[in-house]
Amino acid sequence: MKFGVVLFPGSNCDQDAYYAISKNLGCETTMLWHKDTSIPSDIEAIILPGGFSYGDYLRCGAIARFSPIMQEVAAFAKKGKYVMGICNGFQILTDSGMLPGALLPNMSMKFVCKDVYLKVENNSTRFTSQFAQNDIIRVPIAHGEGNYFVDTDTLHSLEDSNQIVFRYCDMFGEITSDANPNGSINNIAGIINKERNILGMMPHPERCCDSVLGNDDGLAVFESLANVFHQL
C-alpha cells in the first residue's frame, strides 16, 4: 500500500506529489531515483511527476524513457500495477509508447499557467472512482507543450473504448473551444490505457489537494487510487 514518486533530473513537481500523497492523503510514499534499477516490491502505484526532465531536450519526455527506472516502470505497469503521469510525466508516457498520442506545443505558442475546469468523463477507473460521473473540477495547468494529438483512427478507438478520462470544459461543464487551453484534440486533458492501469494527464491534481491552498479538487484522484488498495 505504498506510492512511489520518480525523481528525474529536471523534475519539479515531485515534492508536490510527495506532499499530496503522504500528507494530504496520508499514504506511505517513497521517492525513486531515475538511476534506480529496481522498484521496492511493496509499491503499488507510481507517479511520474511534472517538470522538465532532462531539460526537455530533443522532445518533452524523450530522454527520460531511457533512464534505468523507466525500464522498471514499464515492467511494473506490465504486471498490472498503477502508473500515473502528470504533465511531463504524461509526456514521458506518450513518448515511450506506454500511452497513445503525443503532446505538441500549445496552439497559442504560449506557456499557459492557470486554473482550468475539467469534466470527469469516466469515473469507472481506478484513478477516478471517488468522483461522480461528469463531475466538474478545477485543477491548475502549467505547460508549454500540452496540445494532445493522436491520429484519427486511434482517436476513435480512445473515444469508443471510453479511454478519455478528463476533458477541458468551462465552469458549467460545456466542452467548448474557448475552454480548451492548448488546442488538444477533442479537448482531451487526460487518458487511460486499454488495460486501465496507466493514466496520463496534463493538469496537476497534486497541486490542489490541500484546503489551505483554497482548492482540494485534485485529492479525489489519489483517494481513488488509495481506495483500490483498501479493497485489495
Binding site: 530533443l58 522532445r59 524523450a62 531511457f66 506518450t94 513518448d95 503525443a102
Partner: peptide, 8 residues
Amino acid sequence: QLLCNQIM
C-alpha cells in the same frame, strides 16, 4: 528509436 517521434 530516439530522434524522431513518428506519431507527429
